[in-house]
Amino acid sequence: MDPAQFFQAARVVIVAGKGGVGKTAVTATMARAAALSGLSTLVIEVEGKSGLASLYGQPPFDYDEVVLSKGGGHHGAADVRARALTSDDALIEYLEDHGMSRISKRLAASGAIDMVSTAAPGIKDILLLGKVKQLEVARAADLIVLDAPAAGHAISFLRSPRGLMDAVRVGPINAQAADVLAMLTDPARCQVVLVTLPEETPVNELVETAYSLEDEVGLALGPVVVNSIYPDVVGLERDPTEAAAEAGAFLHPGEAEALRTAAHFRRDRMALQAEQLERLGDLLPLPQLRLPYVFAADLGPDDLAVLADAMLDGIRALPDLVGGTP
């Protein structure tokens, strides 16, 4: 499938996954890959301090939009921009936009936001999603990539509009929730990309999350991103002493053993990963985009380039129907 077409399938992609699966790296990768395909991309963070900026070699950002990577170059890449949203900022902006700037300052100053969000749980989430929806409607970018909250919060985050519509049956928040829900459930506007690792528990959790988002919220699921797959290297099956003799090399004492045990470890883990990839495919009939484990010191722009290339290769290998409604 053509990557540009792939990234145009929905205007908002929500990247979700449990803690520790590399959700933020996948968000960064997806934004970079989309920009390389010529789509201007806006990354939205909702939890702060994610380290996403450092993948682009940039300092951390907050509510004000920044450019993470400038477009141009011979690929005709587009910009990647980013901003972080907080529910407090979103609430104040919302109130000001709705002619309630007087109350907005008072709410913020008195700490009554907690109170308000208790009266209507999910209100913070709806304010964040409402802001995302506003950016989507305003076409702030060709593609908006939202790094969803981690851990178990992703489901409640995405379920918040339905819950809120029950709790608050009239008024502007109800209308806001309805608008957000309309965006979430329209596959041409919004898709969820779930991230996992090729390991047993993360695979189980991903499958659970996938069905719950589809059935309970009515979200459209894009491909699953499986992160941290060991790339193959040659010679893992070979006996190091034989391989050395063949290459005319001399091994230091103990070196053959180190080479052997390390090769065994990788083979072992690769076999386990392959098993889990297959199991995931059996449990969840969604296409998979596989990203390599990056053996590097802390991930930086070079690694991001490797990951973005891997993602683009994966997308090109997908059949054409993916992303649309078959």
């Binding site: 040659v234 010679g235 070979r238 190091p240 063949e246 390390a262 990788r266």
Partner: peptide
């Protein structure tokens, strides 16, 4: 193959 083993 030795190169691969060292890589790993």
């Amino acid at each position: 193959d030795l190169g691969g083993l060292y890589e790993n």
